[in-house]
Design a protein around this nucleic acid. Structure first.
Lengths: 147, 147
DNA sequence: TATTGTTATACTCTATAACTATA
DNA sequence: TATAGTTATAGAGTATAACAATA
């Protein structure tokens, strides 16, 4: 019985900003755990979804959409290309359009399964009647802080 | 008129998990901007609130509450002590109790102001009738993913 | 034996600056 | 003059392993 420390006062969980961050960190950790069998990280999954939905997109455009710096897209794209998940096609002398390669197309259903499982788990503890408010609330919070 | 690229398809913002993360990153950036005049980062503010609410708390206990590794508490505590915001008191041979020092006590109202402004801005775009659901939803999302 | 504070270190993520070649 | 892709590098933030002192 060393812990009266279990009853530590918590002034933080009443703050939406704090809870938003803690929820995000926790959810991200779980998502990455679920992606691990696929050898992917959350950024890879988001990027692949984006390329799938926008065949021919340039890596600069994708980076802008995901808010990833141009410079940081380079190793990301290179790694996924090395794994045969995406492929580049010269558009003009400076741009190259990205698309899913064969292995990437084959991988997408598995990514979708992981995402579905992850989203379901995420909403698990949200009371049913509040669930329809989750996405609108999150979008509003995002808009409120967006650069 | 180079951009038909503005109309890029976005398969991500329909995913609560993705939007949760984007909202969190954006909100954190704004919070840190607001804290900058005080020379603090979000972690400092959270830690100071926790110490204020739990005078005598050890740095290990605080770290557990904030989910910060013991080892990473060391530079945090050292920096805030150097700035005269907190002070340590030996509890026993291995633990030391933390409390706000004079400058820390004086700083708290300003931290509270920043937090209030930040939380208000965060909720700004949430439709009024949904606001009361924000914290419960976020807490539920956190619980769903918590380790 | 378990815990506290500590050091040292590695790894990931992100940011910045500069370069090239193209538009 | 602005943009795409790239390189190199620096800085956070976080994680792990080990150790001494103490409970």
């Amino acid at each position: 019985m060393t812990n009266a420390a279990t009853e530590i006062a918590d002034p933080l969980t009443a703050l939406p900003g704090y809870v938003l961050r803690r929820a995000s960190v926790a959810a991200l950790a779980r998502f990455n755990e679920r992606l691990e069998p696929l050898g992917l990280r959350h950024t890879d999954a988001a990027f692949l979804l984006l390329v799938e939905a926008n065949p021919g997109v340039s890596q600069s455009e994708a980076g802008r959409q995901l808010e990833i710096q141009r410079a940081n897209m380079v190793p990301l794209v290179a790694r996924l290309e090395r794994r045969g998940l995406i492929r580049r096609r010269r558009i003009d002398g400076r741009s190259q359009g990205l698309q899913l390669a064969r292995a990437g197309v084959a991988l997408m259903p598995h990514i979708r399964d992981v995402i579905a499982a992850n989203e379901a788990a995420l909403l698990e503890n949200v009371p049913a009647r509040l669930r329809r408010h989750v996405l609108p609330v999150l979008l509003a919070l995002w808009r409120s802080s967006a650069a």
